[in-house]
Amino acid sequence: MSDAVLSVRDLVVGYGGRPVLNNIDLSLNANEVLCLIGHNGAGKSTLLKSLFGLVAPESGAILLNGEAVTPDPRGMTANGLSLVPEGRGVFPGMTVAETMKLGMWAAGVPEAERADRVDWVMSVLPVMKQFYDRRAGNLSGGQQQMVSIGRALLSKPRCLLMDEPSIGLAPKLFQDLLGPIRELQQSTGMSILLVEQNVREALKVSDRVVVMKSGEMTWEGLPSDLDDNSKLMELY
C-alpha cells in the first residue's frame, strides 16, 4: 500500500528450525492504530520482535516507508520506530529518572535535548511526575507499564509497536494508559501496531484490526465488524 509506514511481505520466522510465522503480509499505514489479535502462541510477539530487529527472519522482506530494511534495534529506533515490550522490561533497582536517562542514551537523544524530551514525555503521561524519583521495583504494575511506554516515547517515534500492554492491569488502568497514547497518535499522526489480548478495550482505540492464527494472517477488517462476540469467537 502506498501509504504504508511499515510493512512485511512473505515473512517467515522460526526458532531452531521450527516455523512460527508463515508467509506473513501486513501493512501499518500512516496515522493509524492497527490492532493485531489472536490466541496465545499465534506468533504476534514474534512478529513485533522481527519488526524491531530482535529476531531475524528466515525469508521475506520488511519495508520501512517502502524501502527494504534489515532491522536492528538501534537502527530502527533511529528510523522512527520504538517498541513497548511484553512484560514491561524495566529494571527494578533503577529509579524512573535513571530509566529515562538510560532510555535517552540508548535512543541517541542529543544531550542538549534531553531535558526537553523528558518534559515532553511528562506532558503526554503527566502521572509519571508523581513517582519519577522512585525505584521501578517499588511501583505498581500500571506505573511500571507507564514507565515502559514513556521510555519508548523518548525517541519521539513515528511508529510505536506495543506488545500486550494490558498484561496484569485492571481494565480501568488499561484505559487510563491507552487514552493519552491515542490522543498523542491522533495529534501527531503517529502509527501504532498494538498487539493485545484485551480485545474489547483495544478495539475502542483502533482504526483497523487483523487476526493471526497459528502463524498466519487469517482476517482483516474494522473494529465495528467485531461487535458481535460470535464473530470474534469464530475468528479465534
Rank of each mutant, 00 (worst) to 15 (best):
D3K: 06
V5W: 14
S7A: 06
R9H: 05
R9F: 03
D10W: 02
Y15K: 03
Y15I: 06
G17Q: 11
R18H: 02
R18L: 10
L21F: 02
L21T: 08
N22T: 05
N22L: 11
N23K: 01
N23W: 03
S27E: 01
L28V: 03
L28I: 06
N29M: 03
V33H: 00
V33D: 04
V33Q: 02
V33G: 02
V33E: 01
C35D: 02
G43F: 00
S45K: 00
T46Y: 00
L48S: 00
L48E: 04
K49P: 05
S50M: 04
F52Y: 07
F52S: 02
G53N: 04
G53F: 01
V55D: 02
A56D: 08
E58P: 04
S59L: 06
A61N: 14
I62D: 01
T70S: 04
P71V: 01
P71H: 05
P73T: 10
R74Q: 12
G75P: 06
M76I: 10
T77I: 11
A78Y: 09
A78K: 14
N79G: 14
P85T: 04
G87V: 09
R88V: 09
R88H: 11
G89E: 11
G93A: 05
M94K: 08
K101Y: 08
K101F: 11
W105T: 13
G108T: 13
E111Y: 11
A112N: 15
E113M: 05
R114E: 06
A115S: 13
R117V: 06
V118L: 10
V118W: 13
D119Y: 00
V121N: 10
M122R: 15
L125C: 13
M128D: 13
M128S: 11
K129N: 14
F131A: 14
F131Q: 13
R134T: 06
L139A: 15
G142V: 11
M146I: 07
S148Q: 13
L153T: 14
L153F: 04
S155V: 07
K156C: 06
K156F: 09
C159K: 08
C159M: 12
C159Y: 12
L160M: 07
M162G: 11
P165Q: 10
G168H: 13
L173C: 12
F174A: 06
G179I: 12
I181M: 07
E183S: 09
L184Q: 10
Q185E: 12
T188S: 07
I192N: 06
L193C: 05
L194D: 07
V195P: 01
Q197G: 02
N198Y: 05
V199A: 00
E201K: 07
E201S: 01
V205F: 11
V209A: 01
V210F: 00
V211T: 09
M212D: 03
M212R: 01
K213Y: 00
S214L: 01
M217E: 10
T218C: 14
T218Q: 14
T218R: 14
G221H: 07
D225V: 03
D225L: 02
S230K: 10
E234M: 10
E234I: 13
E234C: 08
E234N: 08
